[in-house]
Design a protein around this nucleic acid. Sequence first.
DNA 1: CTAACTGTAACTATACTTGTTACAGATATG
DNA 2: CATATCTGTAACAAGTATAGTTACAGTTAG
Lengths: 141, 141
Amino acid sequence: MAANSQFSMAVHVLAMLAHSGDDNVKSECIAASVNTNAVVIRRLLGQLGQAKLVTSQTGASGGTRLARAPHEISLCEIYKAVSCGEVFALHAKSPSQDCPVGRNIEAVLCNLQKEIDKAVGEKLGQYTLASVISQVETAKA
Amino acid sequence: MAANSQFSMAVHVLAMLAHSGDDNVKSECIAASVNTNAVVIRRLLGQLGQAKLVTSQTGASGGTRLARAPHEISLCEIYKAVSCGEVFALHAKSPSQDCPVGRNIEAVLCNLQKEIDKAVGEKLGQYTLASVISQVETAKA
DNA sequence: CTAACTGTAACTATACTTGTTACAGATATG
DNA sequence: CATATCTGTAACAAGTATAGTTACAGTTAG
């Protein structure tokens, strides 16, 4: 299990929170739906909390709720919050600087990487948590 | 070193091959520029060969060359050839089917994944190996 | 005060990428 | 034809990221 599924989990979690309105939801409850451990969920909620997407309460009858309305949360924000990293990685080791191609390829790839990330961000920005929920609802029918 | 840098390496390798025109290039030579082991390069060339982007010759004075002109090779093809996988992964374990959200979220995320991959493919499709080379050349100046 | 939560550290398991060695098979060249 | 020079590929080690799990400190409602 090495593939990064944090974004998928995050969307799932936030959709559940949206479903529960203003009620605090416990990490155990979310974990049951996502089918994983509560600590994994709390780790994820920590990242979403830092991104100001959710707020949590400690203590008895504590839990987590959305910090904003679903239509004010874009999928792009979620993606950035869990920092899934880049679509592709640059060279692990620097290429040979003695080679005319190796010397310059990194800069070109770096620019390309930025463009791709931007394209992904823009595509994700077309959707909000609210639109995800409405898709979940219509699928149910 | 777990991040997938195969796409970066592939573009680098193909740019080198383009630089060498119709001459066979040895894996050792490419490996020196990419700063890695020749076997790693041969593995990569194997994938690029299956995608019909390069042709290789075994035996003495063998090596690899481009199968097509650089302007006929889009970055999207390269991306697909090295199968970098998806931008984000779906759930590792299936969500709980007892939860109204969990039951339907997978399909929604799957569609989203396809859309993102399509957006990435389209963006990459705007570039060819030739355009990468021209960027490398101008950076050199 | 106590029970019920979150937050977080620490450790393990798993899996993926890369690096490396080794060797079989193909082929140009003398 | 013999040989040196390549590719193709298997097999294994090493490094690293994600995820699962246990444990426990800190917070808060009742």
